[in-house]
Amino acid sequence: MKQAAAQGASTEKPAKQVALIIAGPTCSGKSALALAVAQRLGGTIINADSMQVYKELHVLTARPSAADEQLVPHQLYGVLPAADKGSVAWWRNQALTAMQAAWAQGRLPILCGGTGMYMRALTDGLAEIPDCGESARNEARTFVAEHGPEALHARLAEIDPEMAARLKPGDSQRISRAWEVWRGTGHSLAYWQAQPGLPPAPCSFVALRLLPPGQSYAPA
């Protein structure tokens, strides 16, 4: 027979940790809002922009200034040389580590950027896809550069109609990714996405999406 819970003991589950997402297009004011919120609430700003992880692209990607970085902690800005490839899986692992460190310090993790694949890797989880190899990646890049994404989309439709149907013909990044996965693994990206993968981050998210100038920000 089970003993009754001790009087006064709480049976409630501990509350989940919380993280804030501030997303939006380039020059929408994401960094300024993230900085203001971080100063007000005691936050750590974690980069969620695929270009701002590279050291050499400070000016081109409008990274936070050195003065801004002195005001509150900033993580994952300029941490990779341009010669390295920062994958979504790599960023997810780095972001989770930065989030855990922020919580341990009593700070609010603020994920700031415009790379939707990065955000979804945390909020929805991530399919584990084997490395496709440089040959497949270079083949996709070269074909798009020479013939355009629409032509590669047409070729993808011949070998992987399921993924081609999901993608817009002008979406060069996603079309190239679908092509390199098929060429590098022999399976459709849809196949890998259907397999059990990495789970969502163990926290609750509050998300804001900044809209173009003239419009206000809104829940994502």
Rank of each mutant, 00 (worst) to 15 (best):
M51D: 07
Q52Y: 12
Q52M: 14
V53P: 00
Y54A: 11
H58N: 11
H58Q: 15
V59T: 14
V59I: 14
V59M: 09
L60W: 02
T61N: 10
A62L: 05
R63H: 08
S65Q: 03
S65G: 14
A67D: 13
A67K: 10
D68R: 05
D68S: 11
E69D: 01
E69R: 14
E69M: 13
Q70N: 11
Q70I: 04
V72H: 04
V72A: 07
L76C: 15
Y77I: 15
V79L: 13
P81W: 11
P81D: 10
A82Y: 12
G86D: 00
S87A: 00
V88L: 08
A89I: 07
W90M: 08
W91V: 06
W91N: 02
R92M: 06
N93P: 00
Q94C: 10
A95Y: 05
A98H: 09
M99D: 01
Q100P: 00
Q100T: 12
Q100F: 01
A102Y: 04
A102V: 05
W103I: 01
W103Y: 03
A104I: 03
A104P: 08
Q105M: 12
G106V: 09
L108R: 04
L108G: 04
L111Y: 09
L111M: 12
L111Q: 08
C112I: 03
C112E: 07
G113M: 09
G114S: 07
G114F: 05
G114T: 05
T115M: 08
M117N: 05
M117C: 01
A121Q: 08
L122P: 06
L122R: 10
L122H: 11
T123V: 10
G125F: 02
G125T: 06
G125S: 07
G125W: 01
L126N: 07
L126H: 07
P130G: 04
P130R: 06
C132R: 14
C132Y: 05
E134L: 13
E134C: 07
E134M: 14
S135C: 05
S135A: 15
A136R: 13
N138F: 13
A140V: 02
R141E: 06
F143S: 06
V144P: 01
V144T: 03
A145L: 13
E146Y: 02
H147V: 00
G148K: 10
A151N: 08
A151L: 11
L152D: 00
L152A: 05
H153L: 05
A154I: 04
L156D: 02
A157V: 00
E158Y: 01
E158G: 07
D160V: 06
E162D: 11
A164W: 03
L167A: 01
K168R: 15
P169D: 03
G170L: 02
D171E: 14
S172Y: 10
S172F: 10
R174D: 02
I175V: 04
A178Y: 02
A178L: 02
W179E: 01
W179Y: 02
W179D: 00
W182V: 09
W182R: 15
R183D: 03
G184I: 08
G184H: 08
T185G: 02
T185D: 03
G186M: 13
H187L: 07
S188M: 13
S188T: 15
S188E: 11
S188Q: 14
L189M: 14
Y191G: 10
Y191A: 08
P196W: 04
P196E: 09
